[in-house]
């Protein structure tokens, strides 16, 4: 069951490479949020139930519903064009994603001997999600798409923390989740301010070098 969830998460990354619609990317985020929630639940038997119940709820509520809804609301309010308008073609994006998968799994398999904690499938998919998030940020010009890339990167980090055995101290997990949530809220606030100040929330303009 756990492996199937991780594979589904990996497939969502492939789908993110072939779509140009912001709505599709938001659905992928929701899907990933639900998968991460399920994975956390599946792992809860191995972990401290009490401390993880908060993380479980945070994962479901924020990752799967609140943040995607917040971004959708921002897109609607700012009348952002629904296409992501990437700088690279879908084919290139998919080819890059495949390469990212190959590299991530190679690293996972090669480094397996160094740690018995590591679960190669989870590690490979998580690492691929981190790289995919960075790729989306680099290959797109829109602020909203950058934010989606950042969220995919964060989902990858979350999966990696589960793959690492989740021995992080509780206070650290909670603080990290809180910081990430606030950073996203502030980012959305800025997009709204940029829109209201110079009527363009699609892409940054003036500052160069």
């Amino acid at each position: 069951m756990l492996e199937i969830m991780v594979l589904l998460f990996g497939m969502s990354l492939l789908f993110a490479s072939v779509t140009n619609m912001l709505n599709h990317l938001l659905r992928i985020l929701m899907f990933q949020g639900i998968i991460l929630f399920t994975i956390t639940l599946l792992k809860t038997t191995q972990l401290n139930w009490l401390s993880f119940s908060l993380i479980d709820l945070e994962t479901l509520i924020f990752k799967a519903f609140v943040i995607p809804w917040f971004i959708r609301d921002t897109i609607w309010k700012n009348q952002v064009h629904r296409e992501t308008e990437p700088s690279v073609s879908n084919f290139f994006s998919l080819a890059t994603m495949s390469l990212i998968f190959v590299c991530s799994f190679a690293l996972a398999v090669l480094s397996q001997g160094w740690s018995d904690k590591l679960m190669p499938l989870e590690f490979g998919v998580a690492f691929a999600a981190i790289l995919k998030g960075i790729f989306i940020i680099i290959a797109n010009k829109k602020l909203i798409t950058h934010l989606v890339g950042y969220l995919i990167l964060e989902n990858g980090i979350f999966l990696l923390s589960l793959s690492a055995g989740s021995h992080l101290p509780y206070i650290v997990s909670l603080g990290v989740s809180l910081d990430i949530m606030i950073s996203i809220l502030i980012a959305v606030l800025f997009i709204n301010r940029i829109k209201s100040t110079f009527d363009d929330a699609d892409s940054p303009t003036g500052l160069k070098e």
Partner: peptide, 15 residues
């Protein structure tokens, strides 16, 4: 200062 450049700089910094 809520100028175009300062908002963009803040966004870039945050992101």
């Amino acid at each position: 200062e809520h100028r175009k450049a300062s908002l963009e700089a803040a966004w870039k910094y945050l992101f």
